[in-house]
Design a binder for these strands. Structure first.
Lengths: 144, 144
DNA sequence: CATTATTGGTTACTTTTGTAACTAACAACG
DNA sequence: CGTTGTTAGTTACAAAAGTAACCAATAATG
């Protein structure tokens, strides 16, 4: 006897969120991958530093909710690309403050434009009100 | 001179979608991981078979938008767990139809309950109307 | 202050994913 | 029919992510 359920994946929020996240992320990926050989985590770290200014790796972990090993790897990758600089804090030598180099800032500026263009294009099909509603919803879901 | 931009990640849709998707998926993961040692892709394959009945790996790839190698691996994992059965089609021996075993069906039934419970809990903070709006939005974004 | 705990960060090792090349079966075309 | 192309699916190898153990610096405690 084959038991039939009425459960549909297309109503299951985690599934829908993943599909939507995947679709948009894949589409946006080339923006940083092709030109700068960056990985998603690197992009995120760059954006946190670009937006919030200098901060420590730990702060990035907390704000962006990325595991410290991922951040650690992204930081050294960005350092190798000379987009970011570390500076050990004399008052607590465990901390190192991270900040973008000049070239990091200019890459950030370019990528910001790409991101804004992408987001605008993505949202053309929605009203401004819908878009804001969505953002509010996602922020609540993600408990950001 | 530190150039300040007004770009905020918290308004960038791909970022928000990923944060929300990650948050919910991580929370839901134990449901299939702890008890059945399943991976996310395995869960998805199981759910496609559970919901749509017997189908081929290719169909799962297309519907669920999962790469064929991932599906291939998930299928053999589920097969090893005796949750799924393959059957070669005589009219075209390249195809193999997949279907859940009895035990696969009962695992599916249990997991459906978990999923429904999880989704209900997740959505308590939202009105039914909001939830539906969200789903509609995500389906459009994901072009499902 | 010596010992233990905690914290920021890295590294080694394992698991999972992505990419590309491959096999086997069938289809299409000359 | 034989060659070439396509399709479903697997496998081998490389890249990335997760986990846990680790190191060095500081904080907390007896």
């Amino acid at each position: 006897m084959t038991k039939t359920t009425n459960f549909d994946l297309r109503g299951f929020m985690p599934y829908l969120l993943n599909q939507a996240a995947d679709a948009t992320s894949r589409e946006f990926e080339p923006s940083y991958k092709v030109r700068y050989g960056m990985l998603r985590t690197e992009w995120r770290v760059l954006f946190h530093l670009g937006h919030y200014g200098r901060m420590t790796a730990k702060e990035i972990c907390d704000r962006a909710r990325i595991h410290k090993t991922k951040v650690s790897r992204a930081v050294s990758a960005l350092e190798h690309k000379r987009l970011l600089r570390r500076k050990e804090q004399p008052e607590d030598r465990r901390h190192e403050t991270l900040s973008l180099t000049t070239s990091g800032q200019s890459v950030f500026a370019t990528l910001v434009e790409d991101a804004q263009r992408f987001d605008a294009a993505l949202m053309t099909e929605f009203t401004e009100q819908e878009a804001n509603q969505m953002r509010a919803f996602l922020i609540r879901i993600a408990k950001l």
